[in-house]
Design a protein around this nucleic acid. Sequence first.
RNA 1: GCGCGCGUAGCUCAGUUGGUUAGAGCGCUACCCUGAUAAGGUAGAGGUCCCAAGUUCGAAUCUUGGCGCGCGCACCA
Length: 1151
Amino acid sequence: MFEPVRGKPDFPAIEAAISQLWRERGIYKKSLEQRRGSKRFVFFEGPPTANGMPHPGHCLTRTIKDLYPRYRTMRGEYCERKAGWDTHGLPVEVEVCKELGIHSKAEIEAFGVEPFIHRCQESVWRYMKEWEALTERIGFWIDLSDAYVTYHQSYVESVWWALAELFNGGLLYQGHKIVWWWAQGGTALSSGEVGQGYREVADPSVYVAFPLLDDEGNQTTRSLVAWTTTPWTLPSNQFAAVKADLEYVVLREMPGGGDGAGSGIPAQEYIVAEPLAAPLGEKMKKQFEVVDRFMGSTLVGRSYVPPFDTFRPAGSPQATPLQAGGSQPAAWRVVAADFVTTDSGTGIVHIAPAFGEVDYTVLAFEQARFAEGRGPTLLNCVAPDGTFTDTFPMGSGRFVKECDRDITRDLRTRNLLVHQEQYVHDYPFCWRADNDPLIQYPRQSWFIRTSQFREQMLANNARIDWLPEHIKDGRFGNFLETNVDWALSRERYWGTPLPIWKCETTGKAEAVPSYAALVAKPGVQGTDVFEKAKAANPKLSDDLRVHKPYIDAITYDSPFAAGARMRRVPEVIDCWFDSGAMPFAQWGWPHRGEQDFKTQFPADFISEAIDQTRGWFYSQLAISTLLFGAEETPYPHPFRTCIVLGHMLGEDGQKMSKSKRNYREPAEIFDKYGADALRWFFLAGQPPWTSIRYSERAIRESVPEFLLRLWNVYSFFVIYARIDGFDPASLLDAPGPLDHADLAKARGYRPVADRGELDRWMLSELNATCAAVVHRMDRYDHFGAAAELSALVDAVSNWFVRRSRDRFWSAGRADTGPEGNAAKLDAYWTLYETLLTIARLAAPFVPFVSEAIWHNLAVAAFGDTVPESVHLTDFPTGSEPLVDRDLVRRMAIVRDVSSLGRAARAAEKLKVRQPLSKVEVILAEGHGGDAADAAWLEAHADLVCDELNVKQFEICREPDRYITRAVLPDLKKLGPRLGKDLPKARDAITKADAAALLAALSRDGRATIPLAGGGEAVIEKDDVMIRTTAKEGWAAAEGPRAVVVVASQLTPELVAEGLVREVVHAVQSQRKTLDLEFTDRIELAFETASPELTSAIEHHLDYVASETLAVSATFGGLDGAAVESLDIDGHPLTIAIRRTGTAPAATGGEA
RNA sequence: GCGCGCGUAGCUCAGUUGGUUAGAGCGCUACCCUGAUAAGGUAGAGGUCCCAAGUUCGAAUCUUGGCGCGCGCACCA
């Protein structure tokens, strides 16, 4: 027998109990075991970082990541779910630095790399408990005990193998490039990391004069005006770039204002691009006259005085021999460059090759023009820590950005500052230390030649199913097309060490694919460093063996030079490479895990939020393509389908972030509403790729619509099943999965075909929904599937249960015994089957509530002869033979007619309590309905009468009394055929005599109508639709399927009945205010001065008494009764109620 | 600046290949039910489908150009 159900569910408490049940019985493991050997569904877990608290965004990803594996498992597939943790990288180091109160690399070195690494390793697990709790709480089934961890030796060795492969293939190289440099952190960042840190800031923007030299090397009064937002790069200026085919003008200040006028100092003349001259004048609020104009090519080759003489020797510029013969000064010369634009600035670009990628290409180009070894060298007066060196005394030892002000002031005193303003633009900061601006800086760095694989990556991408689809060719495709080589190395500490050892003599390098390969090298030394540390501290993790600083101690004999040693390069790698290597590194492949890797590659399904486009999605695709791309595969790799989730927004619509903590803790939501509420909100609230507004209100409001409604139906079922003795276990001896075929074996389970219409309808809807949900879920459309589920629960609650109440409350027991009531038993079987099936359908979505329902309806009833968990059952796919489409359609018509009837009543202010004599229904033609529908509807007159509280139902025989018919052209059919004549045809059809036209069409199947302005059109029967419109003066409502007319005339009898219903309603309200149980019996007495009301009550006294459970109903007073005076439709009435006793709760009898 | 996405009811969002009366939930208002009851149900009000032009017989839907929002990118010197 079923356990009693609390009417008001405490979902969090229910979920806690279910959670415990799963844990104790190992349901997750069993769900896997049960499918072992079946077709695999491969899922990759994108590793989160556990050194921060989980937030609502993680709840979303974990919900989606749980949904599909659960669904697939129920569909019969085998889906391993290996957890993973991302443990390396800057986020961890920065967190540890914060704890230590330090920031710079120097401080880390002072603290000691070894203890620092230990701290990092501990920090990684700081919030592990919270993560594990969240994972269990939200019902994310995954193997936490067997998680892959990116710092583990086996993982690191897999990454080493990958890097060695790339190195040996010539795809991993060291290059000198301008990189985005985090000076305080002393490392370059990848483009992905740089992208994370853009922020809008106001920088000083300066217009600086570069005085031109004449042919003799003397300074002239004409100056180039260059624009820059990074004054600190000016000391390292090497060139000025112009566009050769752009017009430049020479500006002289008009007399009458400004500095220098009349002071004897020759007026300054400024050279700028013609289109930018006027804007500059406006900014400076000065009048200029143009004294000369020429093309940019005229300027090319001219020498100028750089703003600072940091690197400039005294005297005239030195002529340097060119490759092609002749000579030129190597630096401080005007060059031509195509990238110069007139979008902003002056059309003259200050070139500091050390601090700009484009600037660097100018230098490289210029170097090639000069004789070997004589060209310009890179000028740089900034140290790697972002401070000026002694080469630039003014800023020596200070961070460059802090010197902007002093540099500007200096320029002004030397009359070189033409103009200054604030410039608001986006500038990158370190994504982990967001007060540190990044600078572009020349650096040796290790790169992966990903750009060489652009086409292969695009081809691979083309075969991936992206959801939403536009990611493929949009955001992700674009990113691939503009791919640049992956800046892999990090000059940091806590990361996978770059497994490259260099010969100290020759500088030649080789890559090492594993620790074993390393210690097998000839003359290996230094392995004892770790062993000693381990001896001193036995708790030291063995995995640190392959980390800094221990790994750096290991050296071996160079194969390149006799007597030389091989030493590791100092860098670690970008942690995104770690996570991207996860498809094979999670198994330690290729050093081990061959079988696992083979069966678990590629993934069928992954899902993360959109910020992973350039993160994990890219790193996986790039690594997989580079390593495995040579082989033709019939599938994309390393994943086939990827759901890209939208960003989670806070209550204010702002983006949430771990560091800003601008969100409610998930735990609070779990405690108040439960995990299933949150899951349903995520899954059913919106398509997964839209950004989700995470608000408590929205979560709360999503509960009644589905979870609570489902629970209420379930609770209704259990309450009455217990009362009526519906005990499936006593009717079914050898239960199996409790699906339709299984239940059909039960005694008293009548074949569906023999059952009442409502039952057949319910099972039709149920099975149709199963098929629809499967269809949606197979296409990763859980949002659509959730809508189907929601509609099904609505159908059960608002139609099946409501229309079945009579059966549930009718006399007799719900069994096959002598008191058995077959119709009642049918109702129970139908609702039972429906609820069991819904529990299975909803299981992947709301696993807790589904389990609670299953547990009571199946396990509590049958014990261990049925599956002990809903998650061990097969997902219902729907049985087509049980679906009766005609019935579904016709029931929809009844619901429509009822709804329209109520609308008609409402329009005339006729409340449902007032009985009416008649309802007439005119069915629309041409809406897929037919004559059989009308007959069917007529057969359901009682149902409609009951719903609408009318005495009589009729399909209207004289529709013309109530409606007018209009013939409407079916534009979709006629449009393509008639084209431009359509408007004329439409007018002609609309204006034509509808009756005559219809007659002609039904007689001949076609009709010819004349068109305005000549010509005619032939229309066929199917080319038109008939619209019926209610005539004025009737209580009618029209919908697409029918017009419903209610008779609004009231007879005295009807009025009296209406009054009585009002009285009953008043008594019931009174019962409720008196807090009477629904089984309490009462004595009832009325007093009224209205003869009309007196008469009405007298005529229906029995009805009143039975409806209100009154043992007596009289006129007059009643001692000790609760008395209430009120107004019944304008008639005064006093009601006296006295409780007399309680009848035993039972169904049957007074329905 | 370039790219991607979005713009539909007070709020959150659907809207299938262009087709006649643009939908849902919540909220609001009114009503119903009172044996699922601190539940449940029905109806109503509420829309220049961001703007403009174009294509078309016909545009929320397609095209172009604006405007606004979000996100991403980076040769913003």
